[in-house]
Design a protein around this nucleic acid. Structure first.
Lengths: 152, 152
DNA sequence: ATATAACAGTTGACTTTACAACTGTTATAT
DNA sequence: ATATAACAGTTGTAAAGTCAACTGTTATAT
């Protein structure tokens, strides 16, 4: 789905979707570099954040669904986070098919250290918009996501 | 950069950025599946579209910049498209460092066959919005991208 | 005129991701 | 009670991407 500039389609719907597309591409690029400097992969950060703000202990399957990543990837991702001491797996006794994943103290601490720089980045980008615009943008994105869910 | 639902940050800027982020993730997912069914990789489609709608013959370097993909990927990507007969490389006589890439008749034809389904998908998603909303959304995305360019 | 820079493309190592096939565990149906 | 489904996680393969180092070509500087 290309096209920031030239677009002979002259199709307003296409143009709008391309806008979202390219914003996503740029955002990915910025995030990758940011997290590399912070010595985490973006995918690992996503896992840590999901665990931190989850309302309950999550399984790898849960993470797979929340992060929209294939469950097979969670195996290695969690392995890596365990090696760094950020996450632990707890076998569930009632149902030995899955683990409950928990953030360790080190994991939480690591996230806290990261947070200022992370928020600075986020705000540095988003203060492009006024509060009203932000609200409207958020609303648009929610609707767009709901619409796209239909294609899953 | 996670979080569609739970977000204890209570941070409107973060929320808005996450909206863009998740929309991008979903869009990638939908696109990947769509193009798989159409027997092209999304990355190949992007190249074909870029060549088709370019104002002049592009080099691999040009494509790299337009598609925001490392130039090293273009080698294999173009190789693949040449194998399918969709693209040709022409050595530039004046400057033998680069190729001029051109879409073949087969390439153009392939794109044309794809276009209806592609546009149907795009419209199916974007008719979530009224024309005024689309305009505003496009405007937001343009501003967001310009802002994000600063971090490149 | 020649050494040095810059440029386009390629290659190889590595990471990330998706997908399909597999193991082991639990739930369901007959 | 047992066969079948469904489920969670793991493994292996392949595609796609980044990055750094390399080749060959052209531009620049002294």
């Amino acid at each position: 789905m290309p096209f920031n500039s030239v677009n002979r389609f002259e199709d307003a719907e296409h143009e709008a979707l391309m806008g979202v597309w390219w914003s996503g591409v740029l955002l990915r690029q910025i995030a990758r570099r940011f997290f590399r400097d912070q010595t985490v992969a973006e995918s690992q950060f996503n896992v840590l954040m999901a665990l931190r703000y989850a309302e309950r202990a999550l399984s790898q399957q849960d993470l797979s669904e929340r992060l929209l990543v294939d469950k097979s990837n969670l195996t290695g991702l969690i392995d890596g986070l365990m090696k760094r001491g950020f996450v632990r797996r707890f076998r569930e006794k009632r149902d030995r098919r899955f683990y409950r994943l928990k953030l360790t103290g080190e994991g939480a601490e690591f996230l806290e250290k990261l947070e200022p720089a992370y928020l600075e980045l986020v705000h540095g980008i988003m203060n492009e918009f006024t509060p009203e615009e932000r609200t409207r943008l958020t609303e648009y994105m929610v609707r767009l996501q709901r619409r796209m869910e239909q294609w899953k």
